[in-house]
Design a protein around this nucleic acid. Structure first.
Lengths: 195, 195, 195, 195
DNA sequence: AATGAATGAGCCTTCATTCAT
DNA sequence: GATGAATGAAGGCTCATTCAT
């Protein structure tokens, strides 16, 4: 895939348009309009509409997965890892909101190609393992199923793409910290009391 | 809109097909195939493809909103309300998974028509108010923003549509209880300790 | 073709609808709506949409042609015949405006079936013969081509369907008389002067 | 609306096809076949089938209206104006018969959009004014209603589209002259005699 | 006679994609 | 690299027609 001068513009336009209209709802022409070229010209950059989707979605997906792998493999308490995982999510969203939004909308947890489903499974599994490790280390309570914890946290973080506004009152980082905090306290060993 | 004999079949088929391929990715013919009629025949039941989407999505959306309104207005501790909210979600998913999945995929938290965005906002606001009430009653700790709590919980619950499998090991109700539990403990007043 | 009780209603509805939307632009359902039945029910009266067109169009066409044949065959000055021809047109329009309008719109002078083109040709020819007879009898001047006179007159009369309003200031009869008068004076032998 | 290389071909094809089958009776594919492209390709030139109709119909309509406005506003005897009006009609028909035929069939004197009905009304009114002016100048007799004269003349001229054949014995100009002559003599002041 | 549902063909339009310039 | 035009396959929707009830 050649990457001439305006490649980045094209992908950014695709991210914006796919986010607004959905991948299937958006036409290649919509993307072209957004960049300011004609629809035929887009095919100097891609050979298939799907290439656009992949170009939009791969960077955040790979970055998130990479950071998550490193995190899980590293030393340190599980609580810290959860916090870092949330921050990782937050940073990607801050940098690439439309891209991540498209990823969440079109791929995360959906029935798609084997490749993407594998990436998706791995991400969940890594989160799950962190939770498990925390439980084994008696850092977290063990009476919840780690997979449910992982998926809840991932759900909360992914849901950010549906409501987080970059120009709103809180930064993505602050929000992520609160989400992590909530989750961690939810996992705390000492039985919490209400009221 | 008349609702002749096979109306329910048609909507069920639409839910299934829209869930699998997305609203834009699915054709009316796909739906017709699923019911076993020709695409033209579908138009004895609807006048627009969008009618199908609305027919799929309105029942769960209205049910959830109705139950949430009742919940919020009722007496009782906020903690119970959160638990009931999660169970409400779970029951709708158990009864109508494909319908809810379509709702989450196509409408929840997305930029759509005023009507749907209003419903969506109301749902979030109701959840937020429950959390606020819990804080004001010193039932919950107050150092998280209620809106973030509400949206995180909703995110976790909505994310169920991406991973919950009716024939899996846990019932939707059990999962919802664990999610509510996690959330509530995360909101507990007594400072929780890790390890 | 059976003619049960509401046959006339059906044809009248068809005339109205075809006039408003054109034969091709109107659907059988439009006609059914106008009568107040369902589209399937119309097929108790017809076996083809075209039957509707024919039912609308045949009565005025046949009446006009019949009266014209009688007229042409009768004795008397050509001038009277022209006048009577115009009045014949006027009466049909007064009785059946929508029907005649459909006839003019869909059939008169258009390339259609042999049957209708033959009727059409005959009508023109009869008018032409009247004019010729008037010329041969030195009743009319002979320096215009009779066919052009006939077609002009027919054009003027048919055009009534595009502008005549039954509830307007003049009756169709008065208008027809003025048209005939104009035409006859236009055919007068004594060279007319202007100013 | 861009007008790439084959725009004129497309419009000419549309005129031909619409004339033969009527606007509603003709399909975009029919037009495409006539030009020798696929129906989808037509949409490089238009965005709606109706655009084709307008493209066919606007040139002759505007030309006729423009010439009529000039005519009416000019100096000179009303008789000359009538003659010129007929010639104007004739020339447009000679240059654009299929286009004018479509105009007459689909728009003239029919209930359509406000814009077209306004143009139509203006054309009739201009003709009417010429006749009135002739009457006021005692050039024409005054015992016919000018509007009826105008509409009869217009009817005769429009009817040309139903019978005039470019390769027939008379030129459109000759026919128009005869029609004008007939009309003018019909309007002559000196009482004409028959026989 | 009327109804409601279904059929199948066809229509307008969109769109991913190609290609010569 | 960009453009304008074309392609061919769908897709949403309409509609004449049929038929069991």
């Amino acid at each position: 895939m050649p990457r001439p001068s305006r490649w980045d513009d094209v992908v950014a336009a695709a991210a914006k348009v796919f986010r607004e209209r959905g991948y299937d709802g958006a036409s290649v022409e919509d993307v072209a309009d957004e960049v300011g070229m004609l629809k035929g010209s887009i095919y100097n950059y891609i050979s298939t509409k799907e290439d656009l989707l992949l170009a939009v979605v791969r960077p955040p997906a790979e970055r998130l997965l990479r950071e998550m792998r490193d995190l899980e493999a590293a030393d340190g308490p599980a609580g810290d890892k959860i916090r870092l995982m949330a921050r990782s999510h937050a940073r990607v969203i801050e940098d690439f909101l439309p891209y991540v939004a498209v990823y969440v909308q079109e791929l995360a947890g959906r029935q798609t190609s084997d490749e993407w489903m594998a990436m998706d499974r791995e991400y969940v599994t890594l989160a799950e393992r962190i939770v498990e490790a925390g439980m084994e280390a008696d850092e977290f309570r063990s009476d919840v199923r780690p997979r449910i914890v992982a998926l809840s946290l991932i759900g909360s973080l992914n849901w950010l793409t549906r409501w987080y506004q970059p120009d709103g009152p809180e930064s993505a980082l602050e929000v992520a910290d609160q989400i992590a905090d909530l989750c961690l306290r939810g996992l705390s060993v000492r039985p919490a009391t209400t009221g």
